[in-house]
């Protein structure tokens, strides 16, 4: 269940590629049937306070770090692409993969509540892709990513792109083990999106203004949007592009190539 909106409480199964996984609520090895004798304990004893000081997000944080270490060992640059529904994540990823071509091989993990339409669109373009259908869950978590990544031939990839569920709220809280969190803001969405969803925009390493070819038609106030982005995502690299026309894509691809080299210690 997600801390922000409590989604996933309906008990739907998460489907990763061809497999269905039960929602992770089972216990792990270290807590199972240790029936230690408790001679030293009196079970009718009174109150005691257990200091735990543990984050409720601890499990995801640990799994995310494990993913990150594994991906680094595989020399992969991993992107977590987040945005509202309909900002153009799939087209952006497809065009990024196509333009990188053989120089950097891209694989994709796609998350959606239902349908594998996005995966199909990417697959048609010849990109290796695994679809996660989350059922009722509004975000991807680190455990889903490690299971999905196992279905890709990572040795044949240089960049792993995770297309998160279209949602600007809950995915902000789930580290997936990515190197870069990339948030998309399309020109049709309104310049104040960063102000409305600060946790997500604040957590992003890269902010991309998409559908730039429609800026005039949408009456997009570029200066205001950039000012808002600089305010909330002040540390993020900002790119303005149109995946459809290819305008502005070069700067983004050059950045990606540099980031990939950095991950590989070049």
């Amino acid at each position: 269940m997600c801390q922000e909106c409590g989604c996933g409480s309906g008990g739907g199964d998460v489907k990763i590629g061809a497999h269905t996984h039960e929602q992770e609520h089972h216990h792990h090895g270290h807590e199972h049937g240790h029936e230690h004798s408790h001679e030293h304990h009196d079970h009718t004893h009174g109150k005691q306070t257990l200091n735990l000081n543990r984050s409720l997000m601890e499990k995801n944080a640990l799994l995310a770090e494990r993913n990150r270490g594994f991906f680094h060992a595989k020399k992969l640059l991993v992107l977590n692409v987040v945005s509202s529904p309909g900002s153009g994540k799939t087209t952006f990823i497809r065009e990024t993969a196509a333009k990188l071509g053989a120089s950097l091989r891209v694989g994709v993990i796609v998350g959606d509540l239902a349908t594998d339409n996005d995966a199909a669109r990417l697959r048609t373009a010849g990109i290796p892709v695994v679809q996660i259908t989350t059922g009722t869950v509004c975000h991807l978590d680190a455990d889903m990513i490690s299971k999905a990544a196992a279905q890709l031939d990572l040795d044949k990839l240089d960049v792993l792109v995770i297309e998160n569920v279209g949602n600007l709220v809950c995915p902000a809280d789930y580290d997936l083990g990515e190197d870069l969190r990339v948030v998309l803001l399309s020109v049709t969405e309104g310049e104040d999106k960063p102000l409305k969803y600060p946790p997500m925009f604040h957590s992003a390493n890269v902010a991309i203004v998409t559908k730039n070819d429609m800026a005039t038609a949408a009456g997009f106030n570029r200066d205001l949007a950039l000012a808002n982005l600089n305010r909330v995502s002040h540390h993020a690299h900002i790119f303005e592009l149109s995946a459809k026309t290819g305008d502005g894509m070069k700067a983004w691809l050059d950045y990606l190539t540099k980031q990939h080299a950095a991950v590989n210690g070049k």
Partner: peptide, 30 residues
Amino acid sequence: NFFNECPRCHDVSGELRRGRELEIADVETS
């Protein structure tokens, strides 16, 4: 908020040090 003006020097800072916690501090049992 996530982006704030320092009350002393009025520079804007977004470097959050605290405020995102969701932790179990302790449990009292019997």
